[in-house]
Computed example of a mutant assay.
Amino acid sequence: MTLLPSLFGTRPRALLGVDIGSSAVKVLQLGRRGRGYGVEACAVEPMPANAVADDGQIPDPERVADVVRRAVARAGTGVRDVALAMPTTLVIDKRINLAAGLREADMEEQIRAEADQHISFPLAEVDLDFTRLGRAPGDDTSAEVLLVACRKEHVEARVVAAEIAGLHVRVVDVETYALAGASEILRDQLPDFGVGHTVAVIDLGAATLSMLVLHNGVWAYSHDQTFGGQQLTGEIARVCGVTPEEAEKIKCGEALPEAVTAEVLPRFYDDFAQQIQRAMQYYYANPGTARDAVIDVIILAGGSARIPHLAEAVTERLKLPVQPAEPFRSMPMATRVRGKQVQADGPALLVAAGLALRAFDEPD
């Protein structure tokens, strides 16, 4: 068993967030601008079909490395230290209670001794990390600890792809945690900066829908389920008689064929709204959900959030205010950055933003 010291702790001050997805690689570098942040470098490079599996596994790291290398070159940055994210579908996380007075070294030793109770894989095949969250709810004598594990082969495939591309991996995070970290730069678009509100961030990827709930700006719940934009891509390809690559371009374009607007999109809007309702039902059924934590705002993220009129369609169906994520709307941009393109890609860049923000972690 190997503990990942990069998941929680201090970071280099210049760091690229590199989000490797099944449809694209997103690269983002942020810098300090006063009390806020600015975009220093950014690029999105399409991923060839099947180079990354729907569940996030990378069968051929060299093939993915070529895409990562092109993305970093397009971003035009000299920074080579990077933060990566493991897909939530490949990660096991557990909240456990340990004695509150344990030192970090003692806590690590106890976790090593008890990890096989919480992890379903042989420990020799697993990378493991943990962080102390604070006092356990309702028990002042215990500390709540977040335990995170992933099979070594999955971590190594991502790290190897980055290293082949000439990068140095300093952080290995988890997509859900990166999404939660990026909520910091969403506050400007939330009512009352999120205070007194419960916000659901819906990250619609190619194959997975992830819901992150923020209550008073604090991560309260997360859930993943199988549903994504590739279902719409497949329908467009079928109706229009085009390849999946051509359908992907049609999907986020402004001039959609009539067959798509009249038949395909309405069905997808219905399906997507139903999937959000399903995720919300899981949230409300969760024993830890506070009675007053009723979702009143939905933010759409992920590459598929750019589907035309998606926010309006979901608003109509769910009777809740829905808007696409705008993480960079108040951020200054470096001169080499294509500002309009970064703003347009904003919903797809939330995980990369959460990774890039790891450069500004406070020391433990």
Results as ranks from 00 to 15, higher is better:
residue 303 G to L: 07
residue 321 P to V: 13
residue 313 A to R: 02
residue 306 R to Y: 05
residue 302 G to S: 09
residue 330 S to R: 15
residue 316 E to D: 10
residue 328 F to W: 10
residue 288 G to M: 10
residue 314 V to C: 07
residue 301 A to N: 05
residue 284 Y to G: 09
residue 338 R to Q: 06
residue 337 V to Y: 00
residue 294 V to D: 07
residue 311 A to M: 05
residue 299 I to Y: 01
residue 287 P to T: 11
residue 298 I to M: 04
residue 303 G to R: 08
residue 301 A to H: 06
residue 286 N to F: 15
residue 299 I to S: 01
residue 280 M to H: 06
residue 290 A to D: 08
residue 305 A to C: 13
residue 275 Q to K: 14
residue 289 T to M: 09
residue 325 A to S: 08
residue 302 G to V: 04
residue 310 L to A: 11
residue 305 A to D: 12
residue 306 R to C: 12
residue 292 D to N: 11
residue 318 L to F: 14
residue 284 Y to E: 07
residue 313 A to T: 05
residue 332 P to D: 06
residue 286 N to V: 07
residue 276 I to P: 01
residue 286 N to W: 14
residue 302 G to C: 06
residue 329 R to W: 05
residue 325 A to I: 05
residue 287 P to R: 11
residue 280 M to K: 06
residue 304 S to Q: 04
residue 295 I to P: 03
residue 339 G to H: 03
residue 339 G to E: 09
residue 320 L to H: 03
residue 291 R to Y: 04
residue 308 P to R: 08
residue 320 L to V: 12
residue 274 Q to I: 03
residue 329 R to G: 08
residue 294 V to A: 11
residue 333 M to I: 00
residue 313 A to F: 03
residue 275 Q to C: 07
residue 320 L to G: 03
residue 321 P to K: 13
residue 280 M to V: 07
residue 305 A to H: 06
residue 291 R to G: 12
